[in-house]
Design a binder for these strands. Structure first.
Lengths: 142, 142
DNA sequence: TCAACAGTTTAGAATAATTATAATATATAA
DNA sequence: TTATATATTATAATTATTCTAAACTGTTGA
């Protein structure tokens, strides 16, 4: 994957000035095997844990939004008062575990391609995403 | 539909005490032909417009959540800092117009049943919903 | 190399949605 | 009708996010 990538180059290529903070955030986000689902708060906490250094919350917001705009991150639609982001930017679907509030990527072969038979006139489809809400089997029995 | 239904009886049946405020909110929500997509704020505004009477925001929140818990309303997954609710409680999908920020119900025949081939072990699927994001055709051309 | 400038970061204030609180009011059952 | 459990309300508190304005830093070009 993106392991050990030179984030400075990567950022520069996309027109983002490779500041110290942005490089650190990229390291945290992309230097990992599996995709990462997070809220801004999760990310800020991780930065502090892994780097033992605080980056201003405003900067975390700005940087995440900049990365999202450039297509390095994707915002996910779950109903929640927080925004969730995903380092897996391909079009893909999610399971949302209502017990643990965890978000799990669907493998491509777990959900069949969704067939949209009729679209709104004059509009272009930007994305089609499925959210499968699951919960423990013994719950919701009433 | 629910037109001219006796909301007092309806509420009582489901164990919600039919207070003046709850009945009024039910009237606004369910005495209509088409389904209604709204945020708490939209609803509060409509209450004031139609009844010329103010119901405390806290009550609107409480009531909407009570109705949701009883299955009269459904919360919709769009990424936004607000919660959206829907008076159409059947499992159905949505188009989200990114230009106008409008939410549009999909007709049943516009999207084929989504086939989930593999589920998370030990979990029960509560809902499967599709969000189709659309935007004006001449946008996003870059 | 260094000055200048544009773009960044930052702390903290501002805003907005939502939830909590606690006093008052009301619906309902006895 | 009265007691009691529940609901409503205004307001305060909380939380996520955005704004602001000052200080800082990466980059460009002299």
């Amino acid at each position: 994957m993106l392991k050990n990538m030179n984030f400075i180059e990567k950022l520069r290529e996309t027109g983002l000035r490779p500041t110290k903070q942005r490089v650190k955030i990229c390291e945290i986000l992309f230097n990992r095997e599996k995709t990462f689902h997070f809220t801004i708060n999760d990310l800020a906490k991780k930065i502090f844990e892994e780097l033992n250094e605080k980056i201003s919350l405003a900067t975390v917001y700005n940087t995440v939004h900049a990365l999202q705009k450039k297509g390095y991150l994707k915002e996910i639609s779950i109903n929640s008062n927080k925004s969730y982001f995903d380092t897996n930017t391909s079009v893909h679907h999610h399971f949302y575990d209502e017990d643990t509030h965890q978000l799990i990527d669907c493998d491509e072969n777990e959900i069949e391609t969704v067939n949209i038979k009729k679209n709104i006139t004059g509009k272009k489809i930007n994305s089609v995403e499925v959210l499968v809400r699951v919960a423990s089997d013994n719950q919701n029995q009433n």
